[in-house]
Design a protein around this nucleic acid. Sequence first.
RNA 1: GGGCGAGUAGCUCAGCUGGGAGAGCAUCCGGCUUACAUCCGGAAGGUCGCAGGUUCGAGUCCUGUCUUGCCCACCA
Length: 876
Amino acid sequence: MELTKRYQPADVEAKNYRFWEEGDFFRASVGVVRKVPFSIVIPPPNVTGRLHMGHALNNTLQDVVIRYHRMLGDEACWFPGTDHAGIATQNVVEKDLARQGTTRHELGRDAFVARVWDWKAKYGSEIIDQLKALGCSCDWSRLRFTLDEGLSKAVRHVFVRLYEDGLVYRGEYLVNWCPRCRTALSDLEVDHQDEDGALYFLRYPLEKGGHLTIATTRPETMLGDTAIAVHPGDERHNGLIGSYAILPILGRRLPIVGSEAVDPEFGTGTLKVTPGHDPVDFEIGRKEGLESINILNGDGTLNAAAGPFQGMEREAARKAVLERLQADGALERIEPYRHSVGHCERCDAVVEPLLSTQWFARMKPLADKAIAAVKDGRIQFVPERWTKLYFDWLENIRDWCISRQLWWGHRIPVWYGPDGREFVAETEAEASVRADEHYGRSVELRQDEDVLDTWFSSWLWPFSVMGWPEETDDLKAFFPTSFLLTGFDILFFWVSRMVMASLYFTGEVPFRTVYITPLFVDERGQKMSKSKGNSVDPIDLIGEYGADALRLAMARTTGKGRTVRMPWGDLTEGRNFLNKIWNMARFILMHLGDERPELPCEVTRFEDRYILRRLSETTEIVRKNLEEYSFHLAVEALYAFTWHDVCDWYVEMAKPRLAAGDDKVRGLLCHLLREMTKLLHPFVPFITEEIWQALGEDPRSVCVAEYPCARPQNPDPGDAWAMSMFQGMTGGLRSVRAEWNVPASVELRAIVKADPEGALRPVLERLRECSGMTGPVRMETSSDAQAPKGSARVVLHDLEMYVPLAGVIDLDAEKTRIQKELAAVNAELARAEAKLGNEQFLARAPEDVVEKERAKREELRKKQDRLEANLRSLGG
RNA sequence: GGGCGAGUAGCUCAGCUGGGAGAGCAUCCGGCUUACAUCCGGAAGGUCGCAGGUUCGAGUCCUGUCUUGCCCACCA
């Protein structure tokens, strides 16, 4: 197979993904006894969504993990799927309807839901294709959707079970209400933002004369006031408890009550109590048995309870109420005030606390088990710090409002009889049978209009995708899953709830390890989002840099903190690295021709042994970091080994041998290429597949090849020494050339002061052989060499070299250079000697550290001697 | 009001359980050396936010502090 000069990702990616799909390499089997199961469920992306950077990150990392385990020989299964994303998807389709000049209400429920299904049919595969473009090796035969029949059944089953266990209930409570979406929201779906507002001081006349001044940020809610509260310990006002005030405008009689909830320091120390529109007031109202008045309609306009303001929008009503109060002399003053305002997570509308009848799930009993599972180590968070947040949330958990006044989602499996009695069942037929039994006759049932919160299906995902509540083979083989990876933004929404659901319904943890990724932010540290216009489309990045380059950049974000900025530099670097890999492969394959030589059994050259040892070390580092999910460290190790050890040094050293037809070096290069291709594969699957196929030794895919194991090499310290001498001398000669502008074509004379027959011999041989790395050099070696006049000096701790450059070299400059080097050595030596002169250090530091320090001192002393001698001979 | 993260070379960031400060980009100099100019070689660049403390030894651990970002919380 011919490889192009440059790596061209687009063709390679499309071709190889097709190859994998046709080969069915990602499909997992059940009942393979000898294999260890390893499973991951994907955090299901919104079915009509598009891939964003968070997805790119999450799915890259999941794919690295699953590919690694597949290559380890595990029965690796990555369960893919999509989420119906109730409110998000409904909003998208509603926006589309708005463009067409209609609304869902005009369409009606059934027609609207049909429209959403159409939408899903049209756009639902886009995100899947995008995951494929990223290289994700999901088992597509197991693709699921949260509204699939099987998963819907799980949802109904769970609802009924919770109902029967007394853990779901229906009731009228104050909930977060989005007037734009016209639905209730859970606490988690409300985003709080600090905004500039005002504190309005209103005068409420007292029945017995005089008045009270009360501060509020939402003056229009006064229409729903049913009391006034003061702190019982507040001497200014506590005499009023038990008396009455009169509500301005409406003239309602308001009892004045005492409540610990009132902060005497705030405002005037008096609180208007609006149980229908404020959570604190709602609690006071319950305690005091106050009436709750709802002044709002579902769409945010004011209702009949608002009297003269009926029909107005919220903002207009606020203005109108203030004007009226002003006119009545009841508006004392206005102060600017910054406070937190709740917004709908999905449409950004200001959320209103609203009294309404909803379904709730009691979470406390489930939360206790979920806390225990992490406390006793059955589930582990990576990074570990997230456990604290997990505990904090679960320990303070509140009931979950699970009903939504939407049309897109799982309809609540509750049917009402003619008298409003609830029949909770998994199917209408079942409910009907029970209803008929109850009434003793055939009755008409009406199903609850609401649907369930979209997370009510997501929290079952790890087992519902495997067919639960049926006892399926997949469940037996792959549940609990091995690993979950997601961003911290859905730690509460999803992760905690999955743990709760799984423990409650299956008795098992849903996963053993949870890896929490950072979140992408823009240059200014702002969260990336489409609405802010600061998001980056990963598909564009794939087009520009290639999927493998994007994956490398993603893998390298993992060392960071809670947030990461767009890694533009890593993308370029990744693309360059791939080109490097590509050309290395091209070079090696070119020299292999049609042969695929094996690794020679006997390896005598130091650079061969050295590179094999480095390969082994690198393999070990990569495996270790993959086990620990330190993806960035694995990539760094691969990068350094490939680029520096192999390409910069080993391949360069191999060139003269290749020219001379040395078969051993070809065997070694072939081995290196084979091993590196496998090592790199989980991170950069496309390019490695292409190289694997070009190698052509295994007709199957590299994705099912065996992941390399570190082969312990005989640690011959002589190899490392020889290599460092070689690198030092090569570097020294290159420096001399650069420093004195000696063109690469001009031959240098190098006089090496060393025993030509000693340990340095192979190094000198190699240096002669590899003149391509330094430019032409005529080398002379003797133990008692003297520096000719006008020589540049290369000083290493175990040898020195003189490069005669009379007429070219500026001796003062060379002297300065040596002096600078000497100063650095002296400083280091002083530190080492101070350490070794410190008895405490000798007594307390571990032996190997002391030994290392001694060796270092010896090296530095040798180098110091040589530098000083050279300086003297330079006339310093 | 709590909690968490980040502050290391001009920039973006590595630096695991404490033991000789690193990479890439950018800068400067020199190279189209037939794998690669998405390249090769050379150089320059840092009191590791600040102040204490523990330790023979701190970028790494502890305390405090500053800057910055985020999350949670019923302050009208």
